[in-house]
């Protein structure tokens, strides 16, 4: 899902706004404005807190128990034992590894592909541009589950056309069972994920491209810079902020991958990802305590990633702000 494009820019924007002061004595008008601000923004704020903060606290509380839904009488407080079980289990670490692998490959490929798509759309002929825009929005808007089914059936040995179309490639034959082993299963999962979410990243990059000052490009051209040199020296540095924001949110999004794995492999061939591990413990096994522990750990992973990103790229966000 692509819920998240504008946030980092927004946060830094608000931080640097310097308008929400309060050091000078407030006039009545300022006080009224404050009140109105909270009246207007309050409901949204409260709703957001209710639907997330409460459940995650509840999940943390439940993760301290040994609790199986079909055996409520045996519920027992076990301190942090569930976390010990999860963190000492190779299955958890393997799921983390697979999730990181999928995330890194997906985001890396998407960054390149998305940039290429953005360049094409940016420079495309005026006649072509609306058509391209419409086409590119379809993968973005399509239901992830539908995309997963489409890719699954295309590669499936029982119903897919991929084997018969590409059997001239080395390693692919009529008998290639894509969902029979780890590498090929992950390949299809990643392909579906990339297809569905690259448009989002490319639209963000397109917005970034539009921000690169045209006169800088022209100046570089006059100086005799080649196309590649201009790309590296002018275009990319000038849209660093857009790139970082896009990467941050795609990374977090890819790390939470669930639908594709659920539809295609159900975790077979070691393709289990962290979200799916949590789902299996709570929903399939009905082990609420253990599953809650996995959920809380997944949440902490996501927090850690965002923290790293924001710490690492703080400078860029600030410089992006300077342009405004």
């Amino acid at each position: 899902m692509s819920t998240t494009q504008a946030a980092a820019g927004e946060v830094s924007g608000a931080a640097g706004d310097g308008r929400d002061g309060g050091r000078v004595p407030l006039s009545d008008r300022a006080r009224a404005e404050r009140r109105l601000g909270w009246w207007l923004a309050g409901p949204a704020f409260v709703v957001m807190l209710l639907v997330t903060a409460y459940p995650i606290l509840q999940a943390f509380y439940e993760s301290l128990f040994k609790y199986r839904l079909t055996d409520p009488d045996a519920r027992e407080f076990t301190w942090l034992n569930n976390y010990v079980v999860v963190l000492s289990d190779s299955i958890w670490w393997r799921a983390v590894g697979v999730t990181v692998l999928i995330t890194v490959i997906t985001v890396a490929v998407e960054a390149v592909l998305g940039f290429a798509l953005a360049l094409v759309m940016h420079r495309a002929l005026t006649t072509l541009r609306p058509i391209l825009r419409t086409a590119i929005l379809i993968p973005y808007a399509i239901i992830t589950v539908v995309s997963a089914f489409a890719w699954f059936y295309a590669f499936s040995i029982d119903s897919g056309f991929v084997n018969s179309w590409f059997n001239w490639l080395p390693g692919i034959s009529e008998d290639t069972n894509w969902f029979g082993e780890f590498g090929t299963s992950v390949f299809v999962i990643i392909a579906s994920e990339i297809w569905k979410t690259t448009p989002f990243i490319s639209l963000l990059l397109l917005a970034g491209l539009a921000q690169v000052p045209e006169d800088l490009q022209e100046a570089a051209k006059v100086d005799g810079a080649t196309w590649w040199q201009r790309l590296y020296k002018v275009t990319i540095p000038n849209m660093k902020a857009a790139i970082m924001v896009a990467l941050l949110f795609r990374t977090l999004d890819a790390f939470r991958i669930f639908d594709n794995v659920f539809i295609m492999t159900q975790g077979a061939n070691n393709t289990e990802v962290v979200s799916f591990l949590a789902y299996r413990q709570t929903i399939s096994r009905l082990e609420i305590g253990l599953g809650s522990a996995v959920s809380v750990l997944l949440f902490l992973c996501v927090v850690l990633i965002s923290f790293l990103f924001i710490k690492l790229f703080k400078v860029d966000l600030a410089s992006a702000r300077g342009e405004r």
Partner: peptide, 16 residues
């Protein structure tokens, strides 16, 4: 808060 909610793993809040 909005940022935090957007990055929230859905699966974590489904059980509670």
């Amino acid at each position: 808060t909005a940022l935090a909610v957007a990055i929230f793993p859905v699966i974590s809040i489904v059980t509670p």
